Amino acid sequence: MTTSVTDDQLAKLTRLLDRQEIQDALTRFSRGMDRFDRDLFLSAFHDDATIAAGDFVGGPADLFDWASAMHEAGQYATHHNLLNLTVDIDGDTAHSELYYLFVGRNRDDSNWIAGGRYIDRLERRDGQWRIALRTNAIEWSGLVPTMPIPFADVPDIQVNGTPSRSTEDPSYTRPLLNKRAPNIPS
């Protein structure tokens, strides 16, 4: 039995693949910032992109330098969590709105949380979807009460790797293996 793909199905599949490539680019920004992985971060943007974030307005390389220094000075760890995503694709240009939740463990052991939206224009150039223009709409911010980090007293908690703001983070380990002994707490 032979099945054929209709033009409508092919168009939907193409749109879905484009949307996934756009989402992948947006995720590279987030992970690159949290892991201080400059190459990964920059791979989310076209070299000539413009980004407006807080009091920063400029290009991707300068944004990475500014933001990583700010986060290094201010936080032990950051999480740029990506949430609702809408994407409007028109040929080789797309506009997206991506809700985010930022959480930072500050160096004074307080926790900072903020939310907003990344509003982007992405362009496909040489077959690659990347951010060409970004506006960061910060909509709220606050401090969350500090509590001890769970399981910090477990002796072998970091045998599989220590969280790091670098490519030494366990998320880069290939293949990922478990080195901890079996243990079922009573």
Rank of each mutant, 00 (worst) to 15 (best):
T14D: 05
Y118C: 06
G58C: 02
R174C: 05
I138N: 14
R31P: 08
L10Y: 02
K12N: 03
F36W: 12
Q9F: 07
Y118L: 11
R134K: 10
Q128E: 13
P150H: 03
Y100A: 01
L176A: 14
N160W: 09
S68Y: 10
W66T: 15
A132K: 11
N106Y: 01
P150Q: 09
A25V: 03
P148M: 00
F41T: 12
D156Q: 08
F29N: 05
W66Y: 14
V57A: 10
Q75C: 15
V57K: 14
G59Q: 06
N84D: 14
Q20E: 14
L83F: 10
S96V: 08
A67C: 11
A73R: 14
I51N: 02
T167G: 02
G58V: 06
A61T: 11
P175D: 09
D92E: 15
R35K: 15
R117D: 08
L98S: 06
S171C: 07
P185R: 11
D126Y: 04
T135W: 10
Y172R: 05
F102R: 06
R174T: 15
L177N: 03
R134I: 08
F36H: 15
D120W: 00
T173C: 01
P150R: 10
M1R: 12
S96K: 07
R121D: 10
G54E: 04
D153G: 08
P150K: 10
K179E: 07
G127W: 05
G59V: 03
N106D: 04
D92F: 08
E168A: 13
R28W: 02
E21T: 00
P145A: 12
N111T: 14
